[in-house]
Amino acid sequence: MNLKIVLTFLMAISFCSCNGQQTNANTITTATPMPINRFDKALFQLINSDDTTLNRQLLEQYPQMTEILGKGVLNMQSPDMPGFFIKLENFYSEPTLKNLYADAIKKYDSVTEIEQSLGNAFAWIHETFPAMQIPALYMHVSGFNQNVLVGDSLVSLSIDKYMGEDYPLYQDFFYDYQRRKMQPSHVVPDYIAGWLMSEYPFNGKENVLLDRMIYDGKIKYLVLSALPDMAPAELFGYTNEAWEWCKNNEANIWKAIVERKHLYTPDQMTTLKYFEDMPAQFLASDAPGNIGSWVGLKIVSQFMKETNATPETLMKNENSQEILTLSKYKP
């Protein structure tokens, strides 16, 4: 089984074009809801019980999810390994994590609205990408570990990362700019982005800024298309002031990237700075984080406008330079 772990900082970001509309935007609002398999509740029952028969029940009911969690969170390759369930219970029995788990289960006891939003979004994805497999959806708790777990036919979200920015425990572990993304409103876009990244993995040069920009821009463009009602600033984890700063300084941002020769230079440390959530003070004192994704999305949106390409054509084009050139992006 292939296990892919998708990290939060590359996802859950959207963008609004100048007129607030997008040609490929989803108009489906009454699709069949996408059911979420509550692996999180089943595991919580296990760790709060002395009944060892629940181990076998969990494995029989959620075989793939149990294996994926073991690999992604416990670093154990198979539930058949000796001590698997002992390690599982010990991990989740840590008092702070156990309290977090209980809070998460309570907050997400009902997920009806989330399931409807996912149904609408994945209906658009199926319509736009007919050959794409639609995954089974799950929820888990990782203790701030792996936020999104993706298997061959499933995607699972760690709900303890979506408790709301004012959740008390977050104050001890996360900065303000990180907590702004840890909202219930990020659950649906993170499911979608996680699956899209799995179906269209990054094939460019990891250290080259342009390649990373365009890839992130593609994913964010599709997330916006699937969820046209999502507020761009909120999805970026930006304040309204930060969003306006990006819009007002777009030309200066691009000029700084080009003049510093960052666009093509394969410098890993430099490239990573453009995708961190922390404020991009290496560009300007007021610059918010994740500037690379913001610019990448601007380029991709302009490319789609100039070429009238379909989303499927966009995702099949892995030539970042060609997309930049055809976009005629010159802020």
Rank of each mutant, 00 (worst) to 15 (best):
K4I: 12
K4M: 10
I5N: 10
F9Y: 14
M11A: 14
C16D: 15
C16K: 14
S17Y: 10
G20Q: 02
Q21A: 08
N26F: 09
T29M: 12
N37Q: 15
R38V: 01
D40L: 01
A42E: 09
Q45E: 15
L46E: 00
L54Y: 03
Q57A: 13
E60H: 12
Q61L: 04
Q61D: 11
T66I: 12
I68S: 14
L69I: 10
L69V: 12
G70V: 05
K71C: 09
G72K: 10
P79K: 01
M81A: 09
G83W: 01
F85H: 01
L88G: 00
S93Q: 13
P95R: 00
P95T: 05
T96L: 14
L97G: 05
L97K: 14
K98M: 15
K107N: 11
E115V: 01
L118T: 04
G119C: 03
G119A: 02
N120E: 09
F122W: 09
W124S: 10
I125H: 03
I125E: 02
E127I: 06
F129S: 06
P130L: 04
A131G: 10
M132H: 04
P135N: 02
L137S: 09
L137Y: 15
H140F: 07
V141F: 11
F144S: 06
N145I: 02
N147G: 11
D152A: 06
G164F: 04
E165Y: 07
E165S: 13
Y167H: 13
P168W: 01
P168N: 04
D172A: 14
R179F: 02
R179E: 04
M182V: 04
G194M: 05
W195H: 13
L196H: 00
L210N: 07
K218M: 15
K218A: 11
K218P: 07
I219Y: 04
Y221N: 08
L224V: 07
S225Q: 15
S225A: 15
P228G: 01
D229V: 05
P232T: 08
E234L: 15
N240M: 09
E241G: 06
A251M: 12
A251Y: 10
K255C: 08
I257K: 03
I257W: 06
V258P: 08
E259Y: 09
K261G: 05
T265K: 12
P266T: 07
P266K: 05
Q268G: 15
Q268V: 07
T271L: 06
L272S: 11
E276T: 09
E276A: 06
D277T: 11
D277W: 09
P279T: 01
P279G: 01
Q281M: 10
A284H: 15
A284C: 05
D286C: 06
G289A: 03
G289C: 01
N290D: 12
G292I: 00
G296W: 01
F303V: 05
T307H: 11
T307F: 12
P311Y: 02
Q321K: 13
L326D: 12
L326Y: 12
S327K: 07
K328N: 14
